[in-house]
Design a protein around this nucleic acid. Sequence first.
DNA 1: TCTGGGGTCCTAGGACCC
DNA 2: TCTGGGGTCCTAGGACCC
Length: 420
Amino acid sequence: MTIFALIDCNNFYASCERIFQPKLANKPLVVLSNNDGCVIARSNEAKTLGIPMGAPYFKYKNDLKRQGVTVLSSNYALYGDLSNRVMTVLSSFTPKSEIYSIDECFLDLSGFDHLNLTEYCQYIRQCVFQWTGIPVSIGIGQTKTLSKIANKLAKKSQKANGILDLNNSPWLDTALQRTKVNDVWGIGRRWSKMLKSQGITTAYDLRETTDGWVRQKLGVTGLRTVKELQGLSCIKLEDDPADKQTVCISRSFGNPLTDYNSLKSAITIFADMASSKIRKYGLVAGGINVFIQTSPFNTEIEQYSKSITVGLYPQTNNFQSIHRAALKGLDKTFRPNICYKKAGILLTDLIRPKDAIKDFFHPYPQNNDQLSKAYDDINQRFGPGLIQLGQVRKPKTWYATQNYKTPSFTTRWDELPCAK
DNA sequence: TCTGGGGTCCTAGGACCC
DNA sequence: TCTGGGGTCCTAGGACCC
């Protein structure tokens, strides 16, 4: 029998910001998305004030000010670094673990049941807090889905003190009854709406449905979720993460773009970022998808959205080849006199170069050639974007400022915190 | 004025094969 | 008038996750 623990960092981005600004402790705090567009993280105090997830900042700006909420732009360098630290600590407690997202990690606790799991997890929790400053909650269950539910309840309950073990627990049914169906991992907005219309409102109700009905209404994915609720583990621990299949770089523009050259400049930067990313993974791409679109929120203007795929053959991660293909894609999607609000590129069909089909007439897939490597090294050493292909480095006019960003405390020498 | 970014998996339908 | 059966591959779109 398997036993899973799900460790989830409490209000992760907000907690990261508080480490270096202790004065923010116990005060309402929100973190905004790129371009300071909308709220993507909230401290408990901000949640209590009723600020919803995804709230557009411009609509809530005055509210937030009035209520004394601290507003910060997102600082991914900081969050990424602290995430690595938390994951490193967690991986030392069990031989098998899976990093599930920037702030979540599954541990396989099978074989640990001679211990009191609540006490063991309490110890893990204390270590993580002491060594990284990040508070976490831990849920334990016989399947990943049940450990998710346990985690959610552990966060809510004062009594739980951050840990809830639903493995062989007499409280399992009660826990499922107290979990709304839309809070079940794998049940999103559409499905919960449909389920509620059928009188299925809790995780407990969902667990009691018949297989055939679920299979018909929710497909094999939904059936898997129901089986997991029943205690049958269907979603395994992925402790050896598979290579990525796609890598995407996209941004919304602070100010919409209409001219070809601005768009070209943006797409060039996206292509550079994406190719650099797959070089880091040691992968080559077999295709690139370029997409540009207007704002779906602006109903006044003509809507336009277009994406196009350009094949890369032989597969490559060379920055010039990917740049060339990206611009070819842009030429095919671009139409003049349109207000573009968002653009991006997607590198697809990613493979390891050794897995490429050998071709008598074409060279071996290009992987980390000297020029690309020099390019990465320079940008790594002097800061991203120092050199760019085919354009003079200039301010990104299309990128609105992040007005409330804290320093990259842990990843840049010139932004280290200073003790006075 | 101002609404994130990056992923995965599944399914349905069309093109094409023998 | 009558028009098989079985399969693969690809793509677009829809669902979900954080």
